[in-house]
Amino acid sequence: MPNNSKGMYNKNLVIAGIVIFVILAAFPFWFNVVKSAPAPEVVLTEKAKAAKECVRSKEYMTTDHMVLLDVWRDSVVRDAKRTYVNPKGVEFNMSLSNTCLDCHSNKTEFCDRCHDYASVSPYCWDCHIDNPQGGIE
Protein backbone atom coordinates (compact mmCIF):
# COMPACT_ATOMS: atom_id res chain seq x y z
CA MET A 1 0.00 0.00 0.00
CA PRO A 2 2.35 2.79 -1.17
CA ASN A 3 -0.13 5.63 -0.86
CA ASN A 4 -1.16 4.94 2.70
CA SER A 5 0.73 7.88 4.22
CA LYS A 6 -1.27 10.34 2.16
CA GLY A 7 -4.47 9.22 3.88
CA MET A 8 -4.42 11.78 6.63
CA TYR A 9 -3.83 14.85 4.50
CA ASN A 10 -6.70 17.28 3.82
CA LYS A 11 -8.47 16.17 6.95
CA ASN A 12 -10.61 19.28 7.18
CA LEU A 13 -11.69 19.09 3.59
CA VAL A 14 -12.66 15.45 3.97
CA ILE A 15 -14.71 16.12 7.09
CA ALA A 16 -16.42 19.12 5.52
CA GLY A 17 -17.21 16.98 2.49
CA ILE A 18 -18.75 14.27 4.64
CA VAL A 19 -20.85 16.81 6.53
CA ILE A 20 -22.16 18.37 3.32
CA PHE A 21 -22.93 14.91 1.92
CA VAL A 22 -24.84 13.87 5.03
CA ILE A 23 -26.88 17.08 5.00
CA LEU A 24 -27.76 16.63 1.35
CA ALA A 25 -28.54 12.95 1.70
CA ALA A 26 -30.76 13.61 4.69
CA PHE A 27 -32.68 16.30 2.83
CA PRO A 28 -36.06 14.54 2.91
CA PHE A 29 -35.80 14.01 6.65
CA TRP A 30 -34.95 17.50 7.81
CA PHE A 31 -37.19 19.00 5.19
CA ASN A 32 -40.06 17.04 6.71
CA VAL A 33 -39.15 18.13 10.21
CA VAL A 34 -39.29 21.77 9.23
CA LYS A 35 -42.40 21.67 7.15
CA SER A 36 -44.70 18.82 6.19
CA ALA A 37 -47.38 19.15 3.58
CA PRO A 38 -50.95 19.21 4.89
CA ALA A 39 -52.65 15.83 5.03
CA PRO A 40 -54.78 15.09 1.98
CA GLU A 41 -58.56 15.04 2.14
CA VAL A 42 -60.05 11.87 0.72
CA VAL A 43 -63.47 11.87 -0.87
CA LEU A 44 -65.95 9.10 -0.13
CA THR A 45 -68.41 7.98 -2.80
CA GLU A 46 -72.12 8.03 -1.96
CA LYS A 47 -72.02 4.24 -1.71
CA ALA A 48 -69.13 4.36 0.74
CA LYS A 49 -70.87 7.02 2.84
CA ALA A 50 -74.05 4.99 2.94
CA ALA A 51 -72.15 1.93 4.17
CA LYS A 52 -71.02 4.00 7.18
CA GLU A 53 -68.20 1.65 8.07
CA CYS A 54 -65.58 -0.16 6.02
CA VAL A 55 -64.54 -3.78 6.60
CA ARG A 56 -62.61 -2.52 9.61
CA SER A 57 -62.57 0.74 11.54
CA LYS A 58 -61.57 3.89 9.72
CA GLU A 59 -58.41 4.15 11.80
CA TYR A 60 -57.38 0.60 11.03
CA MET A 61 -58.05 1.01 7.35
CA THR A 62 -56.09 4.25 7.21
CA THR A 63 -52.95 2.75 8.65
CA ASP A 64 -53.21 -0.94 7.77
CA HIS A 65 -55.25 -1.37 4.59
CA MET A 66 -52.18 -2.61 2.73
CA VAL A 67 -51.60 -5.31 5.33
CA LEU A 68 -55.22 -6.32 5.10
CA LEU A 69 -55.06 -6.50 1.30
CA ASP A 70 -51.92 -8.58 1.47
CA VAL A 71 -53.59 -11.05 3.82
CA TRP A 72 -56.69 -11.12 1.63
CA ARG A 73 -54.76 -11.78 -1.54
CA ASP A 74 -52.82 -14.70 -0.08
CA SER A 75 -55.93 -16.11 1.51
CA VAL A 76 -58.00 -15.95 -1.67
CA VAL A 77 -55.35 -16.98 -4.17
CA ARG A 78 -53.45 -19.52 -2.14
CA ASP A 79 -55.78 -20.88 0.55
CA ALA A 80 -59.13 -20.76 -1.30
CA LYS A 81 -60.63 -18.85 1.63
CA ARG A 82 -62.67 -15.95 0.38
CA THR A 83 -64.90 -15.00 3.29
CA TYR A 84 -63.69 -12.48 5.84
CA VAL A 85 -65.42 -12.17 9.19
CA ASN A 86 -64.40 -8.92 10.82
CA PRO A 87 -64.11 -8.45 14.59
CA LYS A 88 -67.72 -7.31 14.72
CA GLY A 89 -68.85 -10.53 13.09
CA VAL A 90 -69.78 -9.03 9.71
CA GLU A 91 -68.89 -11.14 6.66
CA PHE A 92 -67.25 -9.78 3.53
CA ASN A 93 -66.17 -11.21 0.20
CA MET A 94 -62.40 -10.74 0.11
CA SER A 95 -62.08 -9.09 -3.27
CA LEU A 96 -60.28 -5.93 -4.23
CA SER A 97 -62.18 -5.66 -7.50
CA ASN A 98 -65.61 -6.58 -6.20
CA THR A 99 -65.65 -5.40 -2.60
CA CYS A 100 -63.12 -2.59 -2.06
CA LEU A 101 -63.26 -0.94 -5.45
CA ASP A 102 -66.99 -1.44 -5.68
CA CYS A 103 -67.46 1.14 -2.93
CA HIS A 104 -64.31 3.14 -3.50
CA SER A 105 -64.80 3.54 -7.20
CA ASN A 106 -63.20 6.98 -7.21
CA LYS A 107 -59.53 6.12 -7.47
CA THR A 108 -58.28 9.64 -8.12
CA GLU A 109 -60.08 11.23 -5.18
CA PHE A 110 -59.63 8.35 -2.78
CA CYS A 111 -56.69 6.05 -3.37
CA ASP A 112 -54.42 8.38 -5.30
CA ARG A 113 -54.61 11.30 -2.90
CA CYS A 114 -52.95 9.51 -0.03
CA HIS A 115 -50.65 7.45 -2.23
CA ASP A 116 -49.38 10.57 -3.97
CA TYR A 117 -48.95 12.28 -0.64
CA ALA A 118 -47.02 9.36 0.81
CA SER A 119 -45.17 9.00 -2.49
CA VAL A 120 -46.00 5.36 -2.99
CA SER A 121 -47.20 3.86 -6.24
CA PRO A 122 -48.90 0.49 -5.73
CA TYR A 123 -49.72 -1.26 -8.98
CA CYS A 124 -52.97 -2.91 -7.90
CA TRP A 125 -54.89 -1.15 -10.65
CA ASP A 126 -52.69 -2.61 -13.36
CA CYS A 127 -54.95 -5.61 -13.10
CA HIS A 128 -57.79 -4.74 -10.77
CA ILE A 129 -60.41 -2.49 -12.20
CA ASP A 130 -59.77 1.06 -11.10
CA ASN A 131 -63.14 2.38 -12.05
CA PRO A 132 -66.03 0.02 -12.60
CA GLN A 133 -67.88 2.71 -14.56
CA GLY A 134 -65.07 3.40 -16.96
CA GLY A 135 -62.82 1.22 -19.03
CA ILE A 136 -59.09 0.90 -19.04
CA GLU A 137 -57.02 3.82 -17.88
Binding site: F29, S57, E59, Y117
Partner: peptide, 15 residues
Protein backbone atom coordinates in the same frame (compact mmCIF):
# COMPACT_ATOMS: atom_id res chain seq x y z
CA UNK B 1 -38.27 12.47 9.38
CA UNK B 2 -41.10 10.01 8.93
CA UNK B 3 -43.06 11.03 12.01
CA UNK B 4 -45.01 14.01 10.66
CA UNK B 5 -46.09 12.08 7.59
CA UNK B 6 -47.34 9.14 9.64
CA UNK B 7 -49.00 11.44 12.15
CA UNK B 8 -50.96 13.34 9.56
CA UNK B 9 -52.17 10.22 7.80
CA UNK B 10 -53.09 8.41 10.97
CA UNK B 11 -54.81 11.00 13.08
CA UNK B 12 -55.74 8.41 15.70
CA UNK B 13 -53.71 5.33 16.67
CA UNK B 14 -54.51 1.77 15.51
CA UNK B 15 -56.60 -1.05 16.89
Amino acid sequence: GARPAIDTIAAVGGR
